[in-house]
Simulated assay, not measured.
Amino acid sequence: MVTLSPGMLLIADPFLKDPNFSRTVILLCEHEEKGSFGFVINRLFDQQLDALIPDVLRTNIPVYYGGPVQVDTIHFVHQQPELIRGGVEIIPGIYWGGEFDNVVELLNNGTLDLNKIKFFIGYSGWTTGQLEEELKEKSWIPSSSSPSLVFEPQEQQIWQLSLKHLGSNFAMMANFPIDPSLN
Rank of each mutant, 00 (worst) to 15 (best):
V56L: 05
L4S: 04
S148Y: 13
G97M: 12
H78G: 04
D50G: 01
L112W: 01
I94G: 00
W126P: 00
I41Y: 06
E33F: 08
W140E: 01
Q48V: 09
L49S: 00
T3S: 10
V88P: 00
K164L: 10
H75P: 01
D13G: 05
F15C: 04
D55H: 10
K118N: 07
F39W: 04
E134Y: 08
P180H: 13
N20M: 12
W140M: 12
L28E: 01
V88W: 01
I11P: 14
I158Y: 00
P54C: 00
G87F: 05
R58E: 14
Q156N: 13
I11M: 11
P147H: 09
P19I: 12
L114C: 07
Y65K: 08
N109D: 14
M172P: 00
E89W: 04
K136L: 14
N108E: 06
P62M: 08
G7M: 02
P19G: 02
D13E: 15
D55P: 06
L107H: 01
F120I: 07
F39T: 03
I121E: 00
L57S: 13
T128H: 08
I90S: 03
E30V: 06
I90E: 01
S144K: 10
F120S: 02
E134A: 11
L27H: 03
W140K: 14
G38C: 11
F151H: 04
N108Q: 10
G129W: 08
I94S: 00
L4D: 05
L114P: 00
P6I: 00
K34N: 13
E134F: 11
V77H: 02
L114M: 11
A12Q: 11
K136H: 09
Q48Y: 07
E89R: 07
T24V: 12
D46W: 03
L49W: 09
G125A: 14
V2L: 05
G87M: 09
V103A: 01
V88R: 13
S143I: 10
M8A: 10
T73G: 06
N102V: 06
F45K: 02
T111Q: 10
Q157T: 13
V2E: 08
C29D: 01
P62Y: 07
E137T: 05
I26M: 07
I26A: 03
G86D: 13
E89Q: 15
M8V: 08
G7A: 12
N20W: 04
W159S: 14
T127S: 14
E99W: 07
W96R: 05
P62Q: 07
F151A: 07
R23K: 15
L44S: 14
V69W: 09
K17A: 12
W159G: 12
R58V: 15
G98F: 05
L83K: 12
Q47N: 05
I117Y: 02
Q47L: 08
L114R: 09
S22V: 05
